[in-house]
Design a protein around this nucleic acid. Structure first.
Lengths: 342, 342
DNA sequence: GCACCGGGTTGGATCGATCCAGACCGGCGC
DNA sequence: GCGCCGGTCTGGATCGATCCAACCCGGTGC
């Protein structure tokens, strides 16, 4: 034996030799243990344990034509969905682990659709991933149609707003219901003049949330007339809109389409020497970190991102494992995190 | 030809047949194009283009024993490093792409060291990744030693505080220098009584940042006596510490170890009817989203996470590609983002 | 006693790209 | 004309797990 010590990790064959069985038997011990006599199974398992063996993924991937990897494109940091991403991502990874998958991240230049699809295509053609999770359906969704066309398994976080006829599986949060919670909460506290500050009319997400305000106000017999404003997603816009509404209509509460906007509203109250909650109530949307850090605390609608991630992966897993799938889309209800601002 | 249409993607052999060459020649066209006559190369490339061929990753991984995947453990959301994570992560992914890698995410139960190492071990033994990036060296770093022992390539974001003798490559941000920037900035604005609000003494990170304040104050001939407080990383602690310091020592400026703490200081100013900047200046650390959203804007030390990620990947790439490496650790200087609070 | 059955096991072929040893070929020097 | 050379190209073996067809063998039914 003058060969140098073997630095290579053990393989199926190593284990088979150690346990005194064939490779196939070891493979069965791992993948179909019920086929083995318990005594044999124990012996194989002992050998695996002793050698610290794990099946080589590359070999398995090659043979089974599946990698157990799920691709996820992450976007540039200035994207509006981003503050939510870390919570979502963590849950996604966690859930993947539970069903035996891992998450592979990739990126593509922002605002460059062909380049983006090229990235998806590369990963697909090189068989680097089994499936995708897509997260940016709020503003058109070329990938969804593109992936559907090719029969690639994927699940979307977000409804196919722009293409209601799309049939791919998706999971989304019911923004409208979240805003309804906020309105109910404010009505309970005695508010009647409740204003809405939202995004531009071309935002599906923004209009969905707004409809929760409109409908619920009417159900409570309250007027929405002249009590709303629309603009971009910035604290500055929230500030200006709040001042304008306070001057014109003297609302006693604001429901905002996002925490970003709500932070601007809080600033407007401070400008006027008004006290959040005591004088004017404010509710945000997203339950961002800033909502918890700001002075009296900002009441905010919280998206159940942990559940979204779990549902996304469960749908994907069902598809990949050819399990029977019931509904292929799920709309989850958010909750309200109450803080000092109401 | 009564076989069904071939649904399988093209392979090397397909391309070789199409171009009228052997498989090896196609492989060379991809990996060592200089070996081919230009005419042959063109023909092969045309065939690749025509068939839309990409090499199968699993097969390549198996043969070359490398996956071109980098593992990154992500932590539970309530972790203090998390708000920074999305910026870092995005840059990491971007940079990986530039050098031909992808990022594979995994997780492990928090506070469970054996389970965590088990995750690293699994990925290693199954040859799922080539290397790791580790990000949580601020509080001991069992993985670093563990990985070093096994000769696994990895780069850390964060110095090995607890083990100064460790020799693995790392990249970190010079927190002390960041605080020095903050102190200089405040001195320029005429402040002399500049207070420090930091973390507990057992935090390496916190004490490093604090030393920037101590040293710079002394270099400016200013006293630090009784002008500092230490506690946990919360807005509430920041608030209490600010009140206590304002009562006892009447500082005109605060430098805080984090934005979270700084938000509490801003709240304390509001409690007392003091105006940020005009009455008392405040500087935070991390340049978090909240710093930009809060009312007058919070001046904050910004970590160059994009550069950190790039350096991390470059070091890793050098190691994996057996390139000559110069220094194996880099300390990067942060910058100061000036906003309304100073 | 023989065919049959099915759980357990076996060796060989396979997935697709790469490594390796050797073949081929036109050009050059003797 | 022969041998050598460097630049190209070729077929076969290989990476490690899984698929597949066949085999072994004790037990059962007739």
């Amino acid at each position: 034996m003058n060969t140098p010590p073997d630095r290579r990790p053990p393989t199926l064959a190593t284990v088979a030799a150690e346990a005194g069985v064939s490779r196939q038997t070891v493979s069965n011990a791992l993948n179909s243990p019920h086929l083995l006599r318990t005594e044999t199974l124990d012996r194989v398992r002992a050998a695996i344990e002793m050698l610290g063996y794990s099946p080589n993924r590359a070999a398995r991937n090659l043979r089974t034509r599946s990698t157990h990897l799920v691709g996820l494109r992450i976007e540039a940091s200035d994207d509006l969905a981003n503050p939510l991403m870390d919570r979502f991502l963590h849950s996604l990874v966690e859930r993947c682990k539970a069903v035996g998958y891992h998450v592979l991240l990739f990126s593509s230049p922002p605002e460059d659709e062909p380049a983006m699809l090229e990235e998806y295509d590369d990963l697909l053609r090189s068989a680097a991933v089994d499936a995708f999770v897509i997260t940016d359906t709020y503003r058109g969704n070329p990938q969804a149609a593109w992936l559907s066309d090719r029969g690639v398994p994927f699940v979307a976080f977000g409804r196919p707003w722009a293409e209601p006829t799309a049939t791919h599986p998706w999971v989304d949060v019911d923004g409208r219901a979240g805003v309804e919670l906020a309105v109910d909460h404010l009505v309970e506290r005695g508010h009647q003049r409740i204003a809405w500050i939202g995004w531009q009319k071309n935002s599906y997400l923004g209009e969905d949330r707004r409809s929760g305000w409109v409908d619920r106000m009417h159900e409570h017999g309250l007027s929405t007339s002249r009590l709303s404003a629309r603009g971009e997603d910035s604290a500055d816009f929230g500030n200006r809109a709040a001042h304008a509404l306070l001057d014109a209509e003297a609302p006693t509460a604001f429901v905002c389409v996002s925490d970003t906007v709500a932070m601007g509203v809080l600033a407007a109250l401070a400008d006027r020497g008004l006290h959040p909650a005591r004088d004017v109530a404010v509710v945000g949307f997203d339950d961002s970190r800033a909502a918890g850090l700001v002075t009296p605390g900002l009441t905010s609608v919280r998206q159940p991102l942990e559940r979204v991630a779990a549902e996304v992966i469960d749908l994907l897993h069902a598809r990949l494992a050819h399990l029977p799938t019931g509904e292929t889309s799920r709309l989850l209800a958010p909750t309200l995190t109450v803080r000092g601002s109401t």
